[in-house]
Amino acid sequence: MILLDLFHYWVFIAILMMGFYTVIAKQNLIKKLLGLSLFQSAVFLLFIGIAKVDGGTTPILHPSISTEIFSNPLPQVLILTAIVVGISTSALGLAIVVRIKEAYGSIEEDQIQSKDESA
């Protein structure tokens, strides 16, 4: 179980880094937004990993469930909030990209920059 736990953590790091790299290195604005989503998803995975308790179950109290061990509900609540924050950011980012495309005719960062410099 410890191995699985560590594996979770490594996957978290891998996805986090991939997202981060995409945000920094890619010129395409849509790609940057997708990278941002990956970056945030990785953090969700971290929190949900924290919440898992060995032998536990979904934290819903029910008489038919005899087990006493539940997974930790608090990180799950935090991530519910964070997911919604993530989609809100993406939606706003997309709207800005649409406007950038209309104003500059491009969604590549370097092209946009050169258009402003030449203007």
Binding site: G93, I100, E109
Partner: peptide, 8 residues
């Protein structure tokens, strides 16, 4: 617009 995208 590009400025605000960077800010975001």
């Amino acid at each position: 617009l590009p400025a605000v995208f960077k800010y975001l």
